[in-house]
């Protein structure tokens, strides 16, 4: 069975757990003692991912690191309808743009959370300001999408772009970043929580 190297408090692992749940795919969790154990930096784990990061997905002989890459693979391989990663090149381009946003700009929110919760050494004012700047971009985008009658980041139904962006936006409070200013973002969070198969993680509640 497919295995996910997983840490319960990781928003990146949660991207994968959430997606596997909404597409109803069974898998086995391999808990990684990320904190306080630091297991992701041990020689054994570095054999699996030389970057020393989680999540990692193992499916038969395929070993994938990076949550965004894993989402692309899972949606292509296990979503028979291809609704989460449609084959339309234009939508794929837009999805790739937001996957990149999820793994770059939005990760400032993850940095703030690691600083505030687990003692990581980041410039907290700087990462919070960068997260706010990213959230404003997302909020402006979603505001205009709502005006156009659209509910999701890309296209007419939820895609892996929504799944990839969701965790560290919804977890931003953990890093002392308020979403009070981002109305369209909060409404989108509320819609993501209504996707059938939605699951929570600590810091994220059901509607």
């Amino acid at each position: 069975m497919m295995q996910l190297y997983d840490y319960v408090l990781s928003g990146s692992c949660y991207k994968v757990r959430l997606f596997l749940s909404v597409i109803g795919q069974d898998y086995e969790k391999v808990p990684v003692d990320y904190y306080p154990g630091g297991e992701h930096k041990t020689p054994t784990f570095l054999q699996i991912n030389p970057l020393g990061q989680i999540p990692v997905l193992v499916d038969d002989d395929l070993i994938l690191r990076d949550a965004q890459a894993i989402l692309v693979y899972l949606a292509g391989r296990y979503d028979a309808n291809r609704s989460w990663y449609p084959e339309d090149p234009r939508l794929q381009g837009e999805i790739a743009m937001w996957l990149s946003f999820a793994s770059n700009e939005i990760m400032n929110s993850s940095a703030a959370r690691l600083h505030d919760m687990l003692f990581y050494d980041f410039d907290i004012d700087k990462v919070r300001a960068a997260a706010h700047a990213a959230f404003r971009v997302l909020d402006d985008h979603l505001t205009d999408r709502e005006i156009m009658g659209k509910q999701w980041i890309v296209g007419n139904h939820p895609t892996i772009a929504d799944i990839a962006c969701f965790p560290y936006v919804a977890l931003s409070g953990d890093g002392g970043i308020s979403l009070d200013d981002y109305h369209a973002v909060r409404r989108w969070i509320s819609r993501v929580k209504q996707i059938p198969g939605f699951v929570v993680m600590p810091g994220i509640h059901h509607n």
């Binding site: 319960v8 408090l9 003692d33 919760m117 993680m201 600590p202 810091g203 509640h205």
Partner: peptide, 21 residues
């Protein structure tokens, strides 16, 4: 496993954290 035990407790505690703050 030790990871199972640690994850269980951390999950519980982080759920509380979002309330406490």
């Amino acid at each position: 496993t030790m990871s199972d035990l640690v994850h269980f407790q951390q999950e519980i505690f982080l759920q509380d954290r979002s309330i406490l703050e």
